[in-house]
């Protein structure tokens, strides 16, 4: 795919480049490899055996302990993370797509102003929003409920930005015109024509928002006190603070951490191409 150059690079520089990249790859993979090894060990072996070598294979026992601890609270956290991230990203993607589509395809006064407000929103540090949101939500009684985490999560200015540039690139005016001539209303045109053309872009927007919500920690920490509403990140954080007092909890934190990253890593590898389109369009701004 790339340049077959006549310039001959010396074998030395090839080797040096490969060595450098391998070192970096080890750096990126080492913590994950360590986690996999540690998740298979009995608690007693964590400190007494070398961290990068397998000892007793206790993975299934560790999983059993993890999921039965405190009446199966970990399964609840995992489910909560899925609910927040899947539902939040699905709703978020739909509203971003509607808004980005309108900003790309409809002419109206104030359009550029609205778009710059949204772009400004991309730069707002979301953690700065969490504390005032907490106060507003406690006044309305939403604090410490699913909604307290779900509602703010659906808003993604970056998603609208992506939806606008994707729409401009992927939805030709002529197709919309012919749908309109056939008498389709704007919503019908959007749902039956534009959405199909936008599907790959919507997957990209969904993925970014999904990861954003899945990884979020500060917002749920501020909003939630009830353990049964925690996402995985917050639950494991709490457990991690108690490892000194609760026996065998450390092993559960390790196994839980592994469980929490495996599904996302698999989704990542399967959906690689969507990441690259998203990151490419992020970079042309």
């Amino acid at each position: 795919m790339s340049n077959q150059t006549p310039i001959r690079e010396s074998r030395v520089s090839r080797t040096a480049v490969m060595a450098l990249m391998f070192l970096l790859a080890i750096y990126f993979l080492l913590p994950i490899y360590f986690l996999i090894v540690a998740a298979t060990k009995p608690q007693g072996d964590l400190a007494s055996t070398f961290g990068l070598a397998f000892s007793h294979f206790d993975l299934f026992k560790n999983l059993g302990t993890l999921f039965s601890r405190s009446d199966g609270i970990f399964g609840r956290w995992a489910l909560n993370s899925v609910i927040y991230a899947v539902l939040g990203a699905a709703v978020g993607t739909l509203i971003s797509a509607l808004c980005g589509y309108a900003l790309a395809k409809f002419k109206f006064r104030g359009r550029e102003f609205l778009f710059s407000v949204i772009l400004g929103g991309v730069l707002v540090p979301t953690t700065a929003l969490a504390l005032p949101l907490f106060l507003l939500f406690s006044a309305t009684g939403i604090v410490n409920t699913y909604l307290a985490v779900f509602l703010p999560s659906i808003v993604s200015p970056f998603g609208v930005y992506l939806a606008r540039i994707f729409t401009a690139a992927a939805v030709p005016e002529e197709i919309l015109e012919s749908a309109r001539l056939d008498g389709a209303g704007e919503f019908r045109t959007f749902f039956s024509v534009a959405l199909k053309l936008l599907t790959p872009s919507l997957v990209t927007i969904f993925l970014f928002q999904f990861v954003g919500i899945w990884n979020n920690f500060f917002l749920p920490m501020v909003m939630l006190q009830k353990e049964s509403l925690f996402p995985i990140t917050l639950g494991l954080y709490e457990w991690n603070g108690q490892t000194a007092r609760v026996s065998l909890l450390q092993e559960s934190v390790i196994t839980g951490a592994l469980i929490s990253i495996v599904p996302v890593i698999i989704v990542f590898i399967l959906l690689q191409r969507f990441w690259r389109t998203g990151l490419a369009s992020g970079s042309i701004k």
Binding site: V211, N240, A257
Partner: peptide, 27 residues
């Protein structure tokens, strides 16, 4: 390999690294 850490929540990454920093556990 380089992109994989992006799949890891920051808090979980910090927990993983804290094991690698810990004098008792770290290889």
């Amino acid at each position: 390999a380089a992109f994989m850490p992006y799949a890891v929540p920051g808090v979980i990454a910090a927990i993983m690294w804290s094991f690698l920093y810990s004098p008792q556990l770290s290889p």
